[in-house]
């Protein structure tokens, strides 16, 4: 799946004036590519990620998803008027994220996106295994989800923590759990917001390697980070400064 942002911007009223967290921006996320967006705190990196991920509505512009195949018969019905068949046989569909209603956009996020939010993100009452399985159970759950979750935990090196609860985990382990959770639905696009903040060097490298591996499997990966080391894992690097996005390479 390809994701294209066209002239998106985000502004808030601040101190009686309109403050632009993100100036008019174009961005494309392609399968198999890992892009990094770096910049200082407050430069608008997370705002851009949120707009791409369907977590915040842009003040202007649109975010279009080009979907080669729809998952399930009901998908077209779910996404409704926001979905448009592209001309040509098997050309796929185009969906305008922000023309979808909340139900459709939520379903879209669940179906096609894996999102690793900034900071610790876990449901306290669920075990690590349950946290990882959670996205796969929001809509119809399937029988294989437990096996897939176990494999993902294995891959993240925290298989032994499946029955533990989030409060028992370190920051690095929680981050790995968040990656496993983001991967459980086998998403087309993975968004990671500061996935390596507060991690030691070993954990940072491990997490970035995993994200690279995911991109190499054909997924589009967008990483927002202020870590210089992330650059070596990226196919494309962007820099954000005062809401303006610039391509570095």
């Amino acid at each position: 799946m390809l994701l294209r942002a066209e002239k998106i911007s985000k502004s808030y009223p601040r101190g009686g004036r309109e403050f632009y967290a993100l100036q008019e921006t174009d961005l494309v996320l392609e399968p198999g590519k890992l892009i990094t967006v770096s910049g200082r705190s407050g430069s608008g990196k997370t705002t851009l990620l949120n707009l791409m991920a369907g977590l915040a509505k842009p003040s202007s512009g649109s975010v279009l998803a080009v979907i080669p195949t729809l998952h399930g018969e009901a998908a077209a019905e779910t996404f409704g008027a926001a979905l448009e068949a592209l001309p040509g046989q098997d050309a796929g569909y185009r969906a305008d994220l922000y023309r979808m209603d909340d139900r459709a956009l939520s379903r879209f996020r669940n179906e096609y996106y894996g999102i690793i939010p900034q900071g610790e993100s876990a449901v306290a009452a669920l075990s690590v295994m349950e946290n990882v399985m959670l996205p796969a159970t929001v809509y119809a759950g399937d029988e294989t989800v437990k096996d897939r979750a176990a494999k993902l935990l294995e891959r993240m090196g925290i298989r032994n923590l499946g029955n533990a609860f989030p409060k028992e985990l370190s920051g690095g382990e929680l981050r790995r759990m968040a990656i496993a959770r983001a991967m459980i639905r086998d998403p087309q696009i993975l968004f990671a917001d500061e996935p390596t903040s507060d991690l030691d060097d070993d954990n940072r490298d491990a997490v970035l390697s995993m994200l690279r591996e995911i991109a190499d499997q054909g997924k589009a990966v967008m990483v927002v980070t202020h870590e210089r080391e992330a650059a070596q894992y990226a196919d494309l690097r962007y820099r954000m400064d005062a809401g303006v996005l610039e391509k570095v390479t």
Binding site: S106, R107, I115, P117, L134, V138
Partner: peptide, 18 residues
């Protein structure tokens, strides 16, 4: 206290109504 948990549920695809 659980606002972040609720936001996380929305992130993974839970709709407002759900």
């Amino acid at each position: 206290e659980r606002k972040r948990e609720y936001a996380l549920l929305r992130v993974v695809g839970v709709s407002r109504v759900s």
